[in-house]
Simulated assay, not measured.
Amino acid sequence: MDYVDLSKRSLYYSLASIVFNPTAWNIVARNEYRNKTITKILGGNARNGCYFLAASIFLAGMLRDSLFHKAIAEQPHVQILPEPLNVIIPAVLVGLGQLFVVTSTWQLGITGTFLGDYFGILMDHRVEGFPFNVLRDPMYVGSTMSFVGASLWYESPAGLMISLYVYTAYIIALRFEGPFTDMIYSKREAKKGL
């Protein structure tokens, strides 16, 4: 704890944004599934509703990343890895992490990435190509890898602590998101069987 300054507000803003994002998008998406609130506000067009949510999630993610970088900038720094690993390992983690995030988005498309299934925009089949053939949740893993890589790059023990918090927030979000998404597709299959 000598390397984490608990007096900095930026640390708490970062932690709050990290937990806010998956909590908010799960609440909003479940409401959309049940009540079609966003779809109704946007004139009954589910696709426009999904795009609106996608833009909101993307912007909230940018804010989260900005708050994270501000937080680690204001925290103590200490050499964590020896040279040249202090450059190589962070670069590999961020590179692989972003590869997982970008290729996931490419495979799923905008509506598959940003909770289109909650809007009734269902995929025809489960995506099984890269990166889903190597990871069950490549976006969450890739995002976490990027946080860890950035923390190591900036030599921030507080950043590593925040990264663990990110991973924990994603694990909790998946416990709600995964089964609900599975239920949506199970209902579709049950309707096909009738």
Rank of each mutant, 00 (worst) to 15 (best):
Thr103Tyr: 12
Pro138Val: 14
Ala150Ile: 14
Phe114Glu: 00
Val102Ser: 08
Glu128Trp: 08
Leu99Val: 10
Met139Phe: 12
Phe100Asn: 10
Val102His: 07
Ile110Leu: 10
Thr103Cys: 13
Ser104His: 14
Arg126His: 15
Ile121Asn: 00
Leu115His: 09
Gly142Glu: 07
Ala150Glu: 12
Leu135Tyr: 13
Asp137Trp: 15
Val141Glu: 04
Gln98Leu: 11
Ile121Asp: 01
Gly142Arg: 07
Leu135Thr: 06
Pro131Arg: 08
Leu115Glu: 09
Phe119Asn: 00
Tyr118Ser: 05
Ser146Asp: 09
Gly149Leu: 02
Leu99Glu: 09
Met145Gln: 02
Phe100His: 14
Ser146Lys: 12
Gly112Asp: 05
Tyr140His: 07
Val102Gln: 08
Pro131Leu: 09
Met145His: 03
Arg126Pro: 06
Leu152Ile: 01
Phe130Asn: 05
Gly142Tyr: 03
Phe132Arg: 03
His125Thr: 15
Gly142Ala: 13
Glu128Cys: 08
Phe147Ser: 01
Phe114Ser: 03
Gly109Phe: 08
Met123His: 06
Ser143Ala: 06
Tyr118Met: 11
Tyr140Asn: 00
Leu115Phe: 04
Ala150Leu: 14
Gly97Pro: 12
Asn133Ile: 12
Val127Glu: 03
Asn133Val: 09
Phe100Trp: 15
Val141Phe: 12
Ser143Ile: 04
Pro138Glu: 04
Asn133Gln: 05
Pro131Trp: 02
Ala150Asn: 09
Trp106Arg: 05
Thr144Gln: 04
Ser146Met: 15
Pro131Asp: 10
Asp124Arg: 01
Arg126Thr: 15
Leu152His: 00
Met139Ile: 12
Val127Arg: 12
Arg126Tyr: 12
Ser104Trp: 15
Arg126Leu: 14
His125Asp: 10
Val134Trp: 01
Arg136Lys: 08
Ser143Cys: 05
Val127Ser: 09
Phe114Val: 01
Met145Lys: 02
Pro138Cys: 11
Val148His: 06
His125Ile: 14
Asp124Glu: 01
Phe114His: 03
His125Met: 12
Gly116Tyr: 04
Val127Leu: 06
Trp106Val: 11
Trp106Pro: 02
Ser151Gln: 10
Leu99Thr: 12
Met123Thr: 08
Pro131Glu: 10
Gln98Gly: 06
Leu96His: 10
Leu108Gly: 02
Leu108Ser: 01
Val148Phe: 10
Thr105Leu: 09
Asp137Gly: 05
Tyr140Leu: 04
Thr111Ser: 05
Thr103Met: 15
Thr144Val: 03
Val134Ser: 00
Gly112Thr: 08
Gly129Leu: 07
Gly149Phe: 06
Phe147Gly: 00
Pro138Asp: 09
